[in-house]
Design a protein around this nucleic acid. Sequence first.
DNA 1: CCCATTACTTACAAATTTGTTAGTACCATA
DNA 2: TATGGTACTAACAAATTTGTAAGTAATGGG
Lengths: 122, 122
Amino acid sequence: MGKRKENSTNSWNESYIVESCDLTYAVCKIGGRWKLLILCKLENGKLRFSELRNQINGITERMLTLQLRELEKEGLVKRTVYAEVPPRVDYELTAIAKELVPIWSQLSQWGAKHKNLLQQRT
Amino acid sequence: MGKRKENSTNSWNESYIVESCDLTYAVCKIGGRWKLLILCKLENGKLRFSELRNQINGITERMLTLQLRELEKEGLVKRTVYAEVPPRVDYELTAIAKELVPIWSQLSQWGAKHKNLLQQRT
DNA sequence: CCCATTACTTACAAATTTGTTAGTACCATA
DNA sequence: TATGGTACTAACAAATTTGTAAGTAATGGG
């Protein structure tokens, strides 16, 4: 009983997103608990799975895998598997993901500014 | 039995956020299912509660209230109550929220571009 | 007095997202 | 033959987020 939810925080109804603004679409791509953190770490080049795991405080292997899979599917991250044992896999930003870098640096500055403002009020 | 989760998608542990990057902090402020949609609608000036409700497809009054409250608390939206009956309340962007506008327009362009790329692959 | 209007609340239920724990495969090395 | 390192998966449980449905207050007009 009760209708199905038609959308959730980060994986809405594709049709809805596509109809609505590109901004919402964009934020979906990088939203969620871990995605931005992962993308940030890759900003300076390739990293292996284990390097990512160690650099991102608190992430579990499961979450890292899930998020990397989504990022890959959405074309933000490129995954390379080397035919070695023990396995070696690395991840890097795709061209379009790199285009986000200047944007998120602005956003980051905004964040810092906003944080200061809020602290002053307290 | 199982530790408490120390963070959730949009309302993590303040200390963790503050320690970690400003980018993550910023994305938290505008993350979640509805916040950006609300902020976008306010881009061109004040709107009443009911106007927001009508312009945002699918939002419920409960969610609109909750999100507006958070945005207000975080200094992104200013709420003005008029002493009238029936009640009249309007919402507008604060100065710091307006600084986001150029950023989200870039993000929006990125979103459009990314959407095209993905479609070409299919 | 009764109703309409607006901007909310409240209590509850469901869905989604995340976390926990325990595996798996592969081969090289001891 | 047993062990170790790497990059995962799978099953389950818990937390968080969102939705639903039903109120509430205040007052002007009929």
